[in-house]
Computed example of a mutant assay.
Amino acid sequence: MKGDSKGVYSIGAVARMLGVPAQTLRAWEDRYGQIVPARSAGGQRLYSRDQVDQLRFVREQLDSGLQPADAHRLLAERRQKPMSPGTERVVTPADSSTQNDDSARLVILLAERDTYAADFADYFLRTEGYAVHIVLDASEAGRILERRPPDLVVVDLMISGGAGLKLCSGTRDRSAIPILAVSAIDSGDVALEAGADAFLQKPLDPLQFVSTVRDLLGTSAYLRRGSHVR
C-alpha cells in the first residue's frame, strides 16, 4: 500500500491501538533497535503502518508466552523472509450488515475548509460504512464536539483561517477522541504537539486515508479493536 513506510502515527496513538504502554515501546526501540520510528523536526516519534504491524506481531508473541527478546528475534527472522505472492495486506470494507444502520455506525466528524475535499473524504468514509458529519467552520466543529462527541474527528489544520491546531488542542484537552490532522503543508510536528494522533499531508491517498481512520478507530483489517506522547 502506498504510504505504508511513511511515519503517520504518534507513539500515544500506537500505544492505545496495541495496548502497549508508550514507555514500553520506547524501551523496545532502545533495547532491540528493530522498530525505530521516524522523528519529526520537533522530535516527535512517527510510526508507519508497517511498524505498527510489526509491533502487533511482537505483541501477539508476548500474548502467547514468549519473552520480549524472543519475540523480537522472531520478528527479525520474519523480516528477513520475503513476502510470498498473494499475501499482501488487504484492508477490507466495513461489515455490510451495518452499512444501513446509522445507530450501529461509527461517527466521524469531518472538519474541513474545502467543500471539494470534504466531499472527497466523505465519499470514501461512507463507502467504508461510517456515518460522516461535515462542518466547514472550526467554531461549529467545537460546538459539536462538546454537545455530541463523535468516535473520531478529522481536522484540516487550515480550517477557518488556520484554527485547526486550536481545534485539535481543545479536543484533546476535553477528551481522548482520536484525532487525525490533515493539511496541504507539512505540519505533522505541530499537529502532534497540539494533540493529534496522526497526520496526513494532502492530497490524500484514499486507501491510506481510510486505513489510517480505521487504525485509529481500532477497526483495521489487521489491528484489533480496543487496544500524546514523545
Rank of each mutant, 00 (worst) to 15 (best):
D215T: 09
A13V: 04
D186T: 03
D215F: 13
V229F: 13
G19L: 02
R230P: 11
R56Y: 10
A15G: 13
L192E: 03
R172G: 08
A117E: 12
T127A: 12
L110K: 09
L25D: 04
P203E: 00
R78T: 14
A141D: 06
K81F: 10
R39F: 00
G7C: 11
S64P: 02
D102N: 11
K2G: 08
G195E: 14
P206G: 02
I144K: 13
R224W: 07
P21F: 05
R113I: 01
I159L: 00
D30V: 09
R89Y: 15
L109T: 15
V135Q: 06
E88S: 14
E193V: 05
T219G: 00
T92G: 04
L145T: 09
L106G: 04
K166L: 09
Y47W: 12
P37E: 01
D53W: 11
E112P: 10
T127N: 11
D197K: 06
W28P: 03
K2S: 12
D215W: 05
P37N: 03
Q54T: 12
P21L: 05
Q61K: 15
E140K: 15
S40T: 15
S220K: 00
D70W: 01
G164D: 09
R172D: 10
D119I: 13
T92A: 11
L216S: 07
Y123A: 14
K2F: 08
P93Q: 00
S187Q: 15
G161M: 12
S40Y: 01
Q44R: 08
D173K: 15
S5M: 07
V58K: 15
F57K: 12
S97W: 13
F120G: 02
P178W: 10
I11E: 06
V154N: 08
Y32A: 02
Q201K: 11
R45C: 03
F124C: 01
L25H: 04
H133L: 06
G33N: 08
Q67D: 10
A194G: 14
I134H: 07
L204P: 03
A221E: 06
F199A: 02
R39Y: 01
N100K: 14
R78H: 12
G226L: 13
L165E: 04
R230K: 14
S139I: 11
A138N: 01
L110F: 10
G195K: 15
G218C: 13
Q208H: 13
G86L: 08
L110P: 09
G170F: 08
F120L: 10
P37A: 02
L62N: 09
A191S: 15
S220Q: 01
I11N: 04
S40D: 03
F209L: 02
A121N: 13
S160T: 11
A221R: 04
A181H: 05
N100V: 09
D186C: 01
V14C: 05
L136G: 12
R59K: 15
P150W: 14
K2R: 13
P150T: 12
G12C: 00
E140C: 02
R225N: 10
D102S: 12
L167I: 07
Q23G: 04
Q51V: 08
A15M: 05
Y9V: 06
A69I: 14
E193P: 00
H133N: 07
R105P: 09
G188I: 03
R45M: 01
Q99T: 08
R147Y: 04
A191F: 06
Y9C: 07
